[in-house]
Design a binder for these strands. Structure first.
Lengths: 209, 209, 209, 209
DNA sequence: GATGAATGAGGCTTCATTCAT
DNA sequence: CATGAATGAAGCCTCATTCAT
């Protein structure tokens, strides 16, 4: 009757929530939102329907949570990469693209959720996904604005969209191919980065790795 | 054995089928595949469940038909544009991009179906959609290969994906914005075309309209 | 404007009706009543839905017509056999059983309709089928009554049912087996006839063929 | 992790399942497989569609379950009867027939399901039903083989089918008659048993009860 | 008479969500 | 907090039947 929530309980709580979330990410990534049913998630997580609705408001909610987790993972990966890239903006951008491609290539389920499976899911989720993508787009836009002087004039908002679209679509296409016919991830990343950098008129030196 | 199929009957048949297909495209474009139900389609087309299944095998089937119609419309638009662009490949490519952007901007429902709503829908539809997008990608790839000598070396397959992705994502982003805040379609098209052409290393002259 | 119905027309009419009926019998016999759809019947008969409903009131109607055709074929086969069997009643009965078994074995589709597929089909058809079977049962009952003196006392109505049931069930069972594992039809007929004759207490001499 | 399945829950589960199954048996027996719809079953059982599909895979499944329940009831009735009949095989057979007839006469819905309504329902159900009937047939066959020496030579497999068919058809016929015109069940059973025993050439003594 | 397009009632089934234990 | 049985709305689809040509 003493403590309502001991530390151990909190831990367990998180553990169960995570188990559900992890299972959900795997299933969403493999089968998509609609083909993934709540019963399947709870089965995969060795949990129960009741628990599911204790931790998540509904199916949309866990999908949104999944998107957020993915978004955070990506942010982290990008930030680390950028931090390691030194102060030069174009170099940071190149590094960021490559980090993003690598992340998506290494986490195909997350990639599918982000790029493919979260389309056409109703306003709420579309918004969550949009924000995620938009945060990338905005980063690109910021960067471009910061070095505006070094580059030819351009419609930065549109260019930022193109930049992100180029990454997503080509990774998507790459993921759709049978693994044994894929270009090595490194080359894919390099090719995309070059495409984008050239597209914004980066000087020749930064195009090579 | 008397009356076979009179021309008038054939006409009506086509009309009915088209009514269903048109209604379906509108709904798919607005609400997506899953939120569009067969009852809603038949209601919008002033038809009946029975007729629906007389003309289409099932819901997937009409979606595939919709994608095909869209694909054909786009092909036609692109071919016309390219034909009018003269013999120079890079100029053709620029024209094609702009024609595509214009088409998508003018047909937002079709655009949504193509870009967003047809992802993550199961193998059959994914294939149809893939073929459609792939046909664009391949066209780009062909063009790039044809003028390989004039351009810096590149991973053409990846570049083609980037090219298409840049178009789709930026148009999508544009469509998501409230109409009164949108860049004029012409400028959008111009910006995307420039992005892509610069990305493949086109000489400065072709970058301007 | 002269004759409303020429003989040739009557002929054609019959021909089309027969085509439908024949196709229906084949399909009913193979797939059963419910799995046989009107579209399938008209397709198999190279006819049309409209014609179907011109010649038959509805699906039940054509099934009833099929049962009648089958009943008539069987009656004819039995009458011929009995006529050829001479005046002795028990010999007639034995002949009749064997003729029935042969007919069913030779016409498996008709047999399936009569024995299997027409069960559980609603009052109307059950009645038609029942009358058919009942007419056999009654024949048996008549015969038994006619020679009451030569046989041990028995509940003739029940015995007649048993007699018919023995035939149907064993033919049914026989039909269900793969053709290459079946007893030859002649032996089957013989075995059933013996069973029934012995069951009514027929003297030893008539048990053999 | 606290409360697992309490005994009370298991009890309720069984109760709910049984309610559905019982309602289904009644409806199947009265209206047949096709005329019995899932909504009707759940209404009769005061349950819900969801529960139905929680306990049974589909409509076929509950029909199969019904057949199994019926089969078990019959087996039990027969085994009890046989056990009480002493060691003599022919006497056991006579007892078994009478027990079966009594069971069917006492359970007309179950009888209809077994004899009539389960024919022509597709492979799966046909198999279940076949196995049920076949188990009777085989019992008869075993018995006949066991006492082969005391009986005239015969095609035991065919004879077993005849035996079962005689029972089913005559009970069916009996059930079809209005209750007030029916022979008392005891006499029916006696008549059928005599028919079958005489048919296999049983000596006169066992023919009487 | 013949044709086949059109209709719509109604069946089966799934699954997100709730709630008693 | 955990469990899983229960619910029922709603979707997809089939098919017997009608009717305009």
């Amino acid at each position: 009757m003493a403590y309502r929530t001991t530390p151990k309980m909190v831990e367990r709580k998180q553990a169960r929530r995570n188990a559900l979330l992890t299972a959900a990410i795997r299933l969403f990534g493999r089968k998509g939102f609609h083909a993934t049913t709540v019963p399947k998630i709870v089965a995969a997580a060795h949990s129960s329907t009741g628990s599911f609705y204790f931790y998540f408001k509904n199916k949309e909610d866990i999908f949104a949570a999944a998107l957020e987790v993915i978004g955070e993972s990506i942010s982290q990966a990008l930030n680390e990469a950028i931090a390691a890239a030194g102060p030069e903006v174009l170099r940071q951008m190149r590094t960021a693209v490559k980090a993003l491609v690598r992340f998506l290539a290494d986490h195909p389920e997350e990639a599918r959720i982000l790029i493919i499976e979260s389309s056409g899911l109703g306003k709420r989720l579309e918004t969550v996904r949009r924000n995620l993508v938009a945060s990338h787009t905005r980063s690109v836009e910021h960067a471009l604005t910061a070095i505006r002087g070094q580059l030819p004039p351009m419609e930065t908002a549109v260019v930022a969209s193109c930049w992100v679209g180029a990454v997503y679509e080509s990774v998507f296409h790459w993921l759709e191919q049978p693994p044994d016919q894929r270009l090595p991830a490194g080359q894919l990343a390099q090719a995309i980065a070059s495409f984008n950098l050239r597209a914004v008129g980066a000087p020749r030196e930064v195009l090579q790795e």
